[in-house]
Amino acid sequence: MPSRIEVKAPIQLLVEGRDAQYFFMALLNHLNYNNVEVQSGVEWRGHARIYRESPDLISGLDLESEVDVSDLQAFHRVRNAILSRLEPGKLEVKDFGGIRDLRNFLSAVWNAPSARTTIKAIGIVRDAERVAATAFESAQDAVVSIGLNSPDSPQQVVGTKPRIGILILPPGKSDGMLEDVCLDAVHDDPAMQCVEEYFTCVQESVEYWPNRNPSKARVQAFLASRERPGLLLGQAAERGEWNWEHPTYSPIKRFIRDLAKG
């Protein structure tokens, strides 16, 4: 039985889905939260690199010498074992699942042992999907339903004990998702022209194209052009495939810094 996930960090970033969780962990690494806020760094780096770079963390643990990241069970065993040896960091990224799970997950985090004395800020990140305003309102409802004060607009961080912020992706857009943020950042990459040509070709060549999520498909096609194909968006983030310096990520970084203030 894996150890229970505790609420240890004062800043809790709740994101939609495992891919988003890994994406934000990687971004936090980039923002140099990884040393102080070790949980995010270690959670994603819980594979072979941990063994080589941090032998002291694993000495005495009954773990395999190499853990393939695709073996999720082994990955989590390693991650939890390592986390149990580390001091809590400042920021934890948690996956709240699907949007329908947000209210209950948020409530479970806020109800967790010591959460009300530990948590200083909670950030909620979700996709705009078809209508950003509706996505924001549903996140607001989740916050209010557990008795906390919600911000009036996306990216705003309000209140005290705890401060609350809601980020709708892509920031400032009326619809879309995390994948659109990443695609925007690689828009000028030469491979993207091939990606667009590929989908044009597919659409013209097949009688029925059932793809209901073209953004996800484009991300997959783009990532197929990288050194190690087959990665998910979050895994690609950890491997540095997304250029964090691109301006499209600036509102996201600003949101995280606002959350971490104070």
Binding site: R4, N104, A108, A112, P113
Partner: peptide
Amino acid sequence: GTLAAALRSNLEVR
């Protein structure tokens, strides 16, 4: 709902 979410996510509740 809260307890179900906590158990599903393996979040500590005790």
